[in-house]
Structure formats: structure tokens, C-alpha cells
Simulated scan of single mutants.
Amino acid sequence: MILDRFRLTGKVAVVTGAGRGIGAATALALAQAGADVVISSRTAEQLDAVSAKVADTGRKAHAVPADLADPANAAALADAAVETFGRLDIVVNNVGGTFPSPLLDTTPDFLEEAFRFNVSTAHALTRAAVPALLAAGGGSVVNISSVMGRVAGRGFLAYGTAKAALAHYTRLAAADLAPKVRVNSVAVGSVATSALEVVVNNPELRERMESATPLRRIGEPEDIAAAIVYLTSPAGGYVTGKVLEVDGGQQVPNLELGLPDLT
């Protein structure tokens, strides 16, 4: 049966930024597909809620509250998976993000922080995970990039640059780690998470964003989680070094920030 190729029975995954949004939906989806999960974010209470949902599927979750802006904390999750579950098969580098900022307000330090939070943390965990992935016979890494890593919009210089770097990091890491470890990325569009709360809860802004999206809707975290299950399961076993665009068909930004021309 083709659906059997989407099963992850007996696998172990690490998901960063898993307290809510895409990370929480991904952890639950991987558990529903058969995996035990190590989940991490800043807020223990959010992780406890996700752990309870994972338990309802019959799988196990191990919560690690941590500040994942520190790459060392991200790297430590690989050992946590092996110590808790005895193996590691899947890494989902979901944590990331950067506030919009005009170019002249984007200091070099701000740009470096964006790169560190979106790229360096992913590299730290991926690098730390490789020995365990190889010991398990191979594995899969998925990095969460963004549509803003390939389209241009005012105010997204730091965020878009970091996400573009993460997309190309994916291609380069896939070349280095083939054939045993597959590395792919999901470039997400506008998804109804806390980061988009101001838009989701404003009917006028939501209508503007939806009307500028070819599929005429804002994505749900489960849209991204489904793509991650595909990429990490045997169903995606012949895919590596690719960026899967799950963005409702966007080719341009679907909501401008309204930053004025410089004078």
C-alpha cells in the first residue's frame, strides 16, 4: 500500500521550536506517523501540552525546554534523543524567525543575529546529529526556510537573507551527507501561526493577504507538517538537496509592509 511509505514506525525525531505553530503540528504529525519525538522550545508549558497530544497517539515525547538561539543548546538535542530513545532518525530544524526592519535600521549585529538564529542553530543540530543518523542506518534532515528567501519585499532584508542562506545550506549539506543522510527544506509561505496573529485576527489584512495568494487562503501549520512527513518518510526517500515550496503559489510578497521610498 502506498500509504505504508509514509509511516515512520520505530523512528525517532527531533523537532525544534516545537511549542506551538509549525513545530507543534510537525511533532504531532510525526508521532501520528509512528515516531517518538524530542521536542524543544523556550516554554515548558507549551511543550507539556504538545507532549500530551503526542501521548494520545500512542507515541512518546521527551520535552527539552531551552533557548535555541544558542547553537550549543540546539546541538545538545541530538544527544538527548539518543539518551532517551536510543537512536535518532529525523531532524527538523524549525526554530527561526526575525522581526522585519528597514535596511537603514538593520545593523550588522542584527543581520548576524538573524543568520545565527536561522542558520547557525540548524547547522549546530545537524552537525551534532550526523553520527547518530549514520548509526541508525541513515536519516533525514528538514530545514524550515521561507518564501521570503526567494522573493523580494521591503523590510525583510535580514530575514530573507538568512532564509535564502538556509535554503542553499540545504543543498550543500545534502551533497556532503549523501547517500546516507538526506537533507531537504520546506520554504513556507504565510501560515496561521503566532507570528502572523496580527494579520489572522484583522479581517481587512487577512483579506488582502488571501486575495494576493494564488490559492486564496492562509496556510495552516498542518500543511507544512504534511510536507515534512513526506520528506522524512520512505515516501520521500529519493529526494535530497531540494527546497519544497509550500506557499499557496506565491511568486511575490502577499502583504507589503508599506515602507516608504527613501528621500
Rank of each mutant, 00 (worst) to 15 (best):
M1D: 06
I2H: 06
F6Q: 00
T9I: 13
T9L: 06
K11F: 06
V12P: 02
A13M: 03
V14Y: 01
G19H: 06
G21A: 12
A25G: 10
T26N: 06
A27K: 03
A31P: 11
Q32V: 09
Q32E: 15
A35G: 09
D36A: 03
S40Q: 03
S41M: 02
S41N: 04
V50G: 12
S51I: 00
A52D: 12
T57P: 04
G58Q: 03
A61Q: 01
A61L: 01
A61C: 01
P65R: 07
D70G: 00
N73C: 03
A74Q: 01
D79L: 05
A80D: 06
E83T: 08
E83M: 08
G86Y: 09
D89R: 02
D89C: 03
V92I: 13
V92Q: 02
N93M: 08
T98Q: 14
T98K: 12
S101C: 08
P102N: 11
L104N: 09
T106F: 08
P108D: 14
L111D: 12
L111A: 15
E112D: 15
E113Y: 08
E113A: 14
A114C: 12
A114T: 13
F117D: 13
N118S: 14
V119H: 11
T121E: 06
H123K: 07
R127T: 15
A129I: 08
L133V: 00
A135K: 09
G138A: 07
G139F: 08
S140D: 13
V142L: 02
S145V: 09
S146N: 10
V147P: 12
R150L: 06
R150M: 10
G153L: 10
R154D: 14
R154P: 04
R154I: 03
F156D: 08
F156E: 08
Y159Q: 12
T161D: 02
T161L: 07
K163F: 04
A164Y: 03
L166W: 07
A167M: 06
H168G: 07
R171C: 09
R171L: 12
A174L: 11
D176Q: 14
L177P: 04
V181H: 04
V181F: 07
N184G: 13
S185Y: 07
V186G: 10
V186T: 12
V186P: 11
A187W: 10
G189T: 07
G189W: 13
S190A: 15
L196E: 14
V200F: 09
V200K: 12
N201D: 09
P203W: 14
E207C: 01
T213C: 03
R217E: 10
P221Y: 15
E222T: 11
I224W: 05
I228C: 10
V229I: 02
L231C: 08
L231N: 05
P234K: 01
Y238Q: 03
V239I: 13
G241E: 01
K242I: 05
V246I: 13
V246G: 05
G248C: 05
Q250C: 10
Q251T: 14
Q251R: 14
V252F: 11
V252H: 11
P253Q: 07
L255W: 12
E256H: 09
L257K: 04
L257C: 10
L257S: 11
L259I: 05
D261S: 02
T263I: 05
